[in-house]
Design a protein around this nucleic acid. Structure first.
Lengths: 214, 214
DNA sequence: ATAATATTTTATCAATTGGTCAAATTTTGA
DNA sequence: TCAAAATTTGACCAATTGATAAAATATTAT
């Protein structure tokens, strides 16, 4: 009988369980990010994880379970920076910090970004409820906050929703369109050097436009 | 013997050939845009085109041929707006017009945009040579032009490559992340009304930042 | 009208895919 | 140590997939 839960060092909580599940998720992230859900196969993931397909399926019963796990753990990484925008902070500084954090996520978690992009691009069938629920609620709240700042004259006025879209688009672009960015820049195709240039550019683009004319 | 070329009203140039190939490409665009290359099946495309799989394969010998055809015809749509930036025009007006055109393409050809995004996301295996060749050449040329404008004080200085990336990212976002945009805005999930808001926002964002302080 | 040609259908194929099963092996706790 | 539980393996399965071949049907030019 597999996967009992009674004993703390047996079943789902054993060292092997934790390590292998981690191994599988890492391999699956690679594969799903590169091919989307439908384009990825369990065999590919099992290969990447260095184990047999039945062995992988011992840890995750179905292909969709692996994907679901990845999406769930991704969501915190995805929403945290937006949550961190502080109503009590300096408006311009908060927006700039948000942009910086989002860009760092593109640099440090590009595969996660591509996993998310693949999912949205393909109609978000497995996360639409989260988008319409948790994400929308959070976005509306922060949009209201930003609108308030604009009403107080602390930021130049513009549509807060489109502002957020633009921040998402510009920062995630460096992860999602990585291949194109590197091909076009063509210098030092390895490495993350171009992220510094991106940070300078984006801070200038958004903050110059948002700073109120005194 | 299929597909002879001798007679102008026979073979590849016949009415049926042209119409069916068009029908297939339309169906394939829908499917590839929604699932990426690997995630799409010939059966899906044949279904969407209302014909049998062998019949479809009579017009396009392989799955990859259909995709290739789509990519090829997409490329003009993709590169034309960038080509249209006129060295003799007013710098700020040229950039603004480019942004507007790119946004219109996201509105009018969202499936093409998602097809392209899927391809890049998944490592661009079938178009990397075009990216490294034709696209890079064109981008470098236009980046030089924009840099010249900045040197003459006609635009505020910034990195032209990152400027182009940001324009691509923000405009294509409305096609590629359409599901998320609509879910977050949540009003009038149908229609393209939000594109007007996006146009206003983006013109303000880019042009306020780029306009030289007089 | 009819023969040549083009198109469509039916049947089929080997390979791949998601997933199961029972047997073999390893790990664990007492 | 040793039995119970957990893990791994190899052999399978039915469904799907990309693709082919040949026969049947429809279209075209004369």
């Amino acid at each position: 009988m597999p996967l009992s839960k009674t004993n703390s060092n047996r079943g789902r909580n054993s060292r092997i369980q934790r390590e292998k599940r981690e191994l599988i998720l890492g391999a699956a992230l690679e594969v799903f990010a590169a091919h989307g859900f439908r384009g990825s196969t369990i065999d590919q993931i099992a290969d990447a994880a260095g184990m047999s397909k039945p062995n992988l399926l011992y840890y995750f019963g179905k292909k969709e379970d692996i994907h679901q796990s990845l999406i769930e753990r991704l969501m915190d990484t995805w929403l945290d920076p937006l949550k961190a925008i502080d109503a009590n902070g300096d408006p311009l500084a908060e927006i700039c910090a948000y942009i910086k954090r989002k860009l760092e996520i593109s640099r440090d978690f590009p595969k996660e970004s591509r996993l998310f992009a693949n999912e949205i691009l393909q109609g978000a069938p497995r996360i639409i409820s989260m988008i319409e629920g948790e994400l929308k609620t959070l976005v509306d709240e922060k949009a209201k906050l930003i609108q308030g700042w604009m009403n107080e004259g602390k930021l130049n006025p513009c549509d807060p929703h489109h502002l957020l879209f633009s921040i998402w688009a510009t920062t995630q672009h460096y992860a999602d369109f990585d291949v194109q960015v590197r091909a076009v820049l063509a210098k030092d195709t390895q490495g993350d050097a171009h992220f510094d240039g991106a940070a300078v550019f984006l801070e200038n683009l958004f903050c110059k436009g948002l700073k109120p004319r005194t």
